[in-house]
């Protein structure tokens, strides 16, 4: 469903993605972790071309994402993206935030979009909040709205870029719960996160990155309990003791 072939990317002289080869199949839940600056956010941002790559190929659902000429509007509709900082539109209500893309990109009627949006709000546990503005919500609620906004386009893939890193500890659980529910619905997901509990519970595969390279991949149990590389072992011990 998502395939990286020999992908390379540089920010100036910094080699942020170093010869990445990766296949993610339908329904798979992939957790990406690694120290900051290791290229994990950049990796998932390439999937819907929020970042351009300089070398290699990225193929998503048979669309050639790396090609300049590819029209990505439709593809982007099929990929939901959740940011660390939520990035809700502060001048719109929760409902307007969620409806914006379905109405304007998918061109479905407002009535229909509202129905879908309400359903998605139910799904993330925010039934009564459709009329609220983002600033009236807690961080955890805002992030759940952001997830509902992604889901409203009925995506086949959801990408999460450190979805809980900007949250107070007590709100992390409510967001992770929503994500766990998504997994049980069979969503294909790529999650950049250091939440080991989440990874162990739902991930099919953990991918460890460092300095732009995929250092190690494995099932969560393999990776966390018996990492193959010293670099991964060091990283795991650090996130466990912090």
């Amino acid at each position: 469903m998502i395939e990286f072939k020999n992908v390379n990317k540089w920010f100036g002289k910094l080699h942020v993605l170093n010869n990445i080869n990766l296949k993610i199949s339908k329904g798979e839940v992939l957790v990406i972790c690694g120290p900051s600056g290791s290229g994990k956010s950049t990796l998932i941002r390439c999937i819907n071309r929020l970042e351009k790559i300089q070398d290699g190929e990225i193929i998503v659902n048979s669309s050639l994402v790396h090609k300049k000429s590819s029209n990505l509007t439709q593809l982007r509709g099929e990929i939901g993206f959740v940011f660390q900082q939520f990035h809700l539109y502060p001048h719109m209500t929760v409902l307007q935030n969620i409806m914006l893309a379905p109405v304007n990109v998918k061109k479905i009627s407002k009535k229909e979009a509202e129905k879908i949006s309400m359903k998605k709000l139910d799904q993330v546990g925010l039934t009564g909040k459709s009329g609220a503005y983002p600033a009236q919500l807690s961080g955890g609620q805002q992030q759940r709205v952001a997830i509902a906004r992604g889901l409203a386009m009925s995506p086949e893939i959801m990408l999460f870029d450190e979805p809980t890193s900007a949250l107070d500890p007590e709100m992390i659980g409510e967001v992770l719960d929503v994500m766990v529910n998504l997994v049980s619905e069979g969503m294909t997901m790529c999650v950049v996160t250091h939440e080991m509990g989440f990874a162990k519970k739902v991930a099919d595969r953990v991918l460890f990155m460092d300095e732009g390279m995929i250092v190690e991949t494995g099932t969560p149990d393999e990776f966390f309990d018996s990492p193959k590389t010293d670099r991964a072992a060091e990283f795991i011990s650090k996130i466990l003791t912090h």
Partner: peptide, 24 residues
């Protein structure tokens, strides 16, 4: 970041201007 949110949900340049940037 709001622009990126707009881009990643498939809104085009004009739509991002009209719905996200200009009102703010």
């Amino acid at each position: 970041g709001q622009l990126e949110a707009g881009i990643s949900s498939g809104l085009n340049y004009v739509q991002r201007m009209r719905f996200i940037i200009l009102p703010q």
